[in-house]
Design a protein around this nucleic acid. Structure first.
Lengths: 111, 111
DNA sequence: GAGATATTCACCCGTTTGGGTGAATGTTGC
DNA sequence: GCAACATTCACCCAAACGGGTGAATATCTC
């Protein structure tokens, strides 16, 4: 499972901002870097992390590297989160049901 | 926004496994640690990371620390992922629509 | 009070991370 | 061919991470 790489990549605000920038369309490394106060080199490293996580794909055209998003790792994250959330909710619902049942019981005990 | 802490906490497989363990109900630190090949001390550190992210709450009862889940940070992650996914999809749908429109145009050009 | 139990605190260690700089590589355009 | 451009490579640095050990603290139990 590549959840590790994906979640780690998403855990950095600069990288999330890069993804947001790319959601506006294909862009070069330099274009992406222009919006950040850090060096082009650091942005390049962040992009590589996003690439390793599969969130960004690179198309080399001459001296330019065009970057686009890949949604699939995000789909995996969504699937994991929803599955986990559903499981936790079920537990909490069961607990609540149990408490309500006990409450009903109490009401019956006190006419 | 605490997305940073939450995503970083979730990016580690041991920590996700701890959460899974806790989804089975309240447990002590030692109980949680029993399932992992690493030291109790390391598990304790992972638990603290999960606490800092708000995913786990601790209730001290005498010498025992009882741990429970808190779903809210996971809800935040779900909200961010779904919002981002929706935005990306919209872009991709728009792109596809554009391509389809061009395709239609082509068809009209070739009777 | 003494010993066992549960947990954290204070360190040590090797690796990764996020930032930086300067040089190297490859491409474009004149 | 040469200068400008786009990007990465190869380093440096401080901080954080994930693991470990041993000691300290607090609580329970006898």
């Amino acid at each position: 499972m590549s959840l590790d790489h994906t979640l780690a990549a998403l855990a950095d605000p600069t990288r999330r901002a890069i993804l947001q920038r790319l959601s506006g369309g294909e862009a070069r490394v330099t274009d992406v870097a222009a919006r950040f106060p850090i060096s082009l080199n650091s942005v390049s490293k962040h992009i590589r992390v996003l690439e390793r996580a599969g969130l960004v794909r690179r198309r080399v055209a001459g001296r330019e590297h065009l970057l686009t998003l890949d949604q699939r790792p995000l789909d995996e994250v969504a699937a994991w989160v929803e599955q986990t959330r559903a499981f936790w909710s079920k537990r909490l619902d069961a607990l609540e049901a149990l408490l309500v049942a006990e409450d009903d019981h109490d009401h019956k005990e006190q006419p």
